[in-house]
């Protein structure tokens, strides 16, 4: 087992190398440390939310509400700031609120036994809705500089953003917890077989409560970083980030079925997506086209490792396969032809 996942991480490393070489060849601006460090700040909130997501997905669950929790806690921060609170007190309350959001998710999932997809789909709307209820059409702005430094500041004398340091420290802690503690082993056990691990004495409910609370807390922390980076908050802050977080986690080799995955893999995947996006930005690829590339990367990352296995089966090449292959190819070609033909006509007509 261990060997297979080692291989996955090497694959990610190889992809990172390939991407870097391609980007460097295509854009002279890619390898500048200033540029790379500046671009890193676009991914730190995602990275912070990714860390507990790895725990959750390893246990075979999911959390769709992370970006909404981020929005709610950042909006609470803004609301309290507008009401004249001290910024650090407001931030502490916002972190607490985030943890409570996670606790509620965990309680519904662990205590009532509800599917995590359903619960967090509901709280996805609910928490974002509360963010709108708090701030309405108002923005909170004018945070003190000491606070905005969290998102905008750099280590004195260097170009290294504080947020990057924060992420690295957190990532190391999360890696150690996952690899070196009983808690970490329990997570894999639950993901592999929840019923069996419960019978062998793993406190399944308590662990689920803990990881969802942790996820809420980290999302709130990401909310603080994002609000500091923006220097302001609106209730729609960070919406849609949950899909990026999940994409990166899964691309990092954390199996959605549970029981499999490492923190190193997920962090490498964050780096891979980061440099891919930045590279595509440098080449001025349109955002929607970037979406196609990320979507394809996600699917191929799971398809490709299986290819070797298929080819090993000798009867793949048998005559009986011709019909379905032919039919599928025919449909694909017909669709492709129609797509490009009608697109050409349409664009010519404009």
């Amino acid at each position: 087992m261990a060997k297979r996942f080692l291989r996955w991480e090497w694959l990610l490393v190889a992809l990172i190398v390939v991407m870097s070489v391609v980007n460097t060849r295509l854009s002279p601006f890619f390898l500048e440390p200033t540029n790379l460090l500046r671009a890193s700040s676009d991914f730190m909130e995602i990275g912070i939310m990714m860390l507990p997501m790895v725990f959750i997905i390893i246990t075979g669950n999911i959390d769709l509400s992370v970006a909404s929790t981020l929005g709610l806690s950042a909006s609470l921060l803004g609301y309290l700031h507008n009401a004249g609170w001290n910024i650090w007190l407001a931030a502490a309350m916002a972190l607490l609120a985030g943890a409570l959001c996670g606790l509620l998710n965990g309680a519904l999932i662990a205590r009532l036994g509800l599917p995590s997809l359903v619960v967090t789909l509901g709280t996805f709307s609910f928490y974002r809705g509360l963010a709108y209820a708090l701030l309405g059409d108002q923005a909170a702005r004018g945070y003190p500089e000491a606070f905005t430094l969290i998102g905008q500041g750099r280590l004195p004398g260097t170009r290294v953003p504080y947020a990057l340091l924060l992420f690295i420290v957190l990532a190391v802690i999360f890696t150690l917890v996952l690899r070196g503690t009983r808690f970490g082993r329990y997570l894999y056990a639950i993901g592999n077989n929840e019923a069996a691990s419960r019978y062998s004495g793993v406190p399944v409910r308590r662990i689920k409560l803990m990881i969802y609370t942790l996820s809420g807390l980290m999302s709130a922390l990401a909310g603080m970083v994002l609000a500091a980076r923006f220097g302001s908050t609106r209730p729609d802050i960070g919406s849609g980030l949950e899909l990026t977080v999940i994409t990166i986690t899964v691309l990092g080799g954390v199996s959605i079925a549970g029981g499999v995955g490492t923190m190193v893999g997920a962090s490498l995947s964050l780096l891979l997506i980061g440099i891919t996006r930045f590279g595509m930005g440098l080449m001025n690829l349109q955002g929607q086209v970037q979406g196609i590339a990320i979507g394809a990367l996600l699917i191929l990352s799971i398809l490709l490792p299986q290819v070797g296995g298929w080819l090993a089966k000798r009867h793949v090449w048998g005559r009986a396969t011709l019909l379905p292959v032919g039919a599928a190819l025919l449909v694909a070609v017909a669709f492709g032809w129609f797509f490009f033909w009608s697109r050409g006509l349409m664009l010519a007509a404009q």
């Binding site: 519904l108 619960v119 509901g122 709280t123 709307s125 609910f126 928490y127 974002r128 809705g129």
Partner: peptide, 9 residues
């Protein structure tokens, strides 16, 4: 939005 989410929950 909050009310919608709450009712679904």
């Amino acid at each position: 939005l909050a009310a919608q989410g709450l009712l679904i929950l």
